[in-house]
Amino acid sequence: MVMTTILEIIFIILLAGIIGLFFLGLSRKIMARIHWRYGPPITQPLIDIIKLFNQTSMSHGFLFNFGIIFSLAGSVVVLLFLPFGRICPLSDSGGLLVILYLMLIAPLGLALSGGEAANPYTSIGISRKLLLAFGYELPLLLILLTVMTHYNTISIVEIVNKQFQAGWSFQHLSLLLPGIAYILILPAILGFRPFELIQAPQEISSGPMAEYSGKFLALTTIQHAFNIFISISLFTNLFLGGAANPGYFFLKILAVFVIFLFANAVFPRFRIEQAIKYLWRWPSILAFAGLIIVLITGKNF
């Protein structure tokens, strides 16, 4: 029992890392193709990471190191709570609320690490990151509450199971609007354009990462890879019915990811006020309408 859990944990972490890095590479390739370029090889993120680990690095102190470890650990722990296909090692110790909370460890860790760097560029980046998170959490919380109220459970495994019985969440009218709202905010969660204002290399010198070098940058890249995997699989689990096996699940998240890449390739960048205004307007209205519909029509389960 314990042995299988440990094996599942190792399997999920490795697979999520590989898929995340593959997605990063794929995004660079597809973006290049949309730009009419040839693009780097799909393994380029891995090459970057290998190089970064072989570089020297500069550290600003204890918290600078601790923050990045904390952040990566937070991202990895979330993986254990997300159903990957049918595999979910720690399904019975928390549920969706715990996922929601664990997802905030990663930005908090980066914020602490960046704060220690004593560089205003990092501080501006962190300020933007927290504001953007505050912006998309409002619709996201409404969406998650709608889903949880609809299925009357806080367990993500149960939500996936109920979708196996009654079809994808998208098929229910009351969850259609929140689903659309989630699609609208997903680029903000992923940090894709038009919400790429956290790093904004041309404005604030890549923001929170301005002081990172060598292995710090490598760990941040890995964390970003995990983060992409987590955000998309949360969407897939909640609205696209999860999947019965890992292979099918991979195909689903791949499809979702590629759609967002197309958006990423063509959009310019919002300013932070514009981003918050956007996030608090259309996605929030849609999610709110969904919640009202769920409350009126009553629970389906």
């Binding site: 680990f53 570089q55 690095s57 470890i69 990566l72 990895v76 002081e211």
Partner: peptide, 26 residues
């Protein structure tokens, strides 16, 4: 998981400590 990442962190090249006046300022 924290211990694991810490070990990876420790195992890779040691980083040099710098002060607040050795910052990136363009």
């Amino acid at each position: 998981i924290g211990i694991m990442i810490w070990l990876i962190f420790k195992g890779s090249k040691k980083s040099a400590g710098i002060g607040q006046y050795d910052n990136y300022a363009a």
